[in-house]
């Protein structure tokens, strides 16, 4: 039984980490309409920034400052925000698919930099000995898993609360106005590119924060952790959970990561050993099938955006 608790706490930890990144993407796509196809790039920058700040000093590498966990998180936030600012200044004039193509390219570039900037990232060897926060304080992996899950629950609630606060402020309403009709927002005198840039930077720094939490829970980082498929997974989480709703983003992360992992569990339990090697392909089919069916029956996601524009406006039933 303790095994289940240990596994489920580990599972939920990863799911909530993805949930934070999904909320970041929700800020960009769900509220502002920015098509960021380079999620994993900012996830990677956060992860590496964290690893370099907290990692052990190694003579052959730049970095390794051995600073505390919290400073590592702040470093991840700062560096991913800075990267997003640079990328944003260059790309924010691009619309939809142009932005998608350029951010996708940027994410690939970031992964290649991680692979080749060996004096900083140790290249394909990855950075080892990162140590997980307070790991020594726990006798069993179960204790650590529960502690880290608690940390992730707190982090998720803080991020969720902060996002709800700013998205329901006048600032957040402008974002939705831009998403619905950019020209209309401009005609109201809003500086659209500034708002888009702000939303982009905040969203990317959340992805960076998620990257730091990921590395914190694993204790190792390599360019291998940041394949383009991670971007696809996080997009799936947002669309399936409900774009434009942060609770949907969190639920989507849990459900999609659950489908992704439990399908492997299912296959290895159901199929006889002789079939398991072939069965792996059916896992991928199963994942695709569940995602397609969910979207067919709940096209707006599990929890879609609530149709309220402002409290004073009268709504036609949609």
């Amino acid at each position: 039984m303790m095994g289940y608790v240990s596994y489920l706490s580990f599972f939920l930890t990863l799911a909530l980490i993805y949930g934070i990144a999904t909320m970041g993407l929700n800020m960009q796509w769900g509220f502002t309409g920015l098509f960021n196809a380079g999620v994993v790039g900012f996830f990677a920058i956060g992860g590496y920034a964290y690893a370099i700040v907290i990692g052990p000093d190694r003579p052959d590498l730049v970095g390794g400052f051995e600073l505390p966990f919290v400073i590592g998180l702040l470093g991840a936030l700062a560096f991913s925000a800075l990267a997003a600012l640079i990328v944003g200044l260059a790309t924010m004039r691009l619309r939809s698919h142009y932005l998608a193509i350029s951010t996708f390219g940027i994410a690939l570039t970031i992964q290649l930099v991680a692979l080749n900037f060996e004096s900083l990232t140790a290249g394909n060897l990855g950075l080892i000995g990162l140590g997980r926060p307070l790991e020594d304080a726990f006798d069993t992996p179960l204790g650590f898993n529960l502690f880290y899950l608690g940390l992730m629950v707190v982090a998720t609630l803080v991020v969720y609360g902060a996002l709800q606060l700013i998205l329901h402020s006048p600032w957040g309403r402008v974002l939705r106005a831009i998403r619905e009709d950019e020209e209309a927002a401009i005609s109201l005198g809003k500086n659209v590119s500034r708002f888009r840039l702000e939303a982009f930077v905040i969203g990317c720094s959340l992805m960076g924060l998620a990257g730091a939490f990921y590395v914190g829970s694993i204790g190792y980082i390599s360019p291998f952790d940041f394949l383009p498929i991670v971007t696809f997974q996080i997009w799936t989480m947002l669309i399936l959970g409900g774009s434009g709703n942060n609770r949907g983003a969190i639920l989507g992360a849990i459900v999609v990561w659950g489908v992704w992992t439990s399908s492997g569990w299912l296959i290895s339990t159901v199929l006889p050993p002789a079939w398991q090697v072939r069965g792996a392909a059916s896992q991928v089919i199963l994942i695709g099938l569940i995602l397609v069916l969910t979207l067919l029956y709940r096209p707006r996601g599990l929890i879609g955006e609530r149709v309220t524009v402002s409290s004073g406006a009268k709504l036609n039933d949609r």
Partner: peptide
């Protein structure tokens, strides 16, 4: 190694 190492450490 990129998969074996995180399995080992975590």
């Amino acid at each position: 190694s990129g998969v074996s190492l995180p399995i080992l450490t975590s």
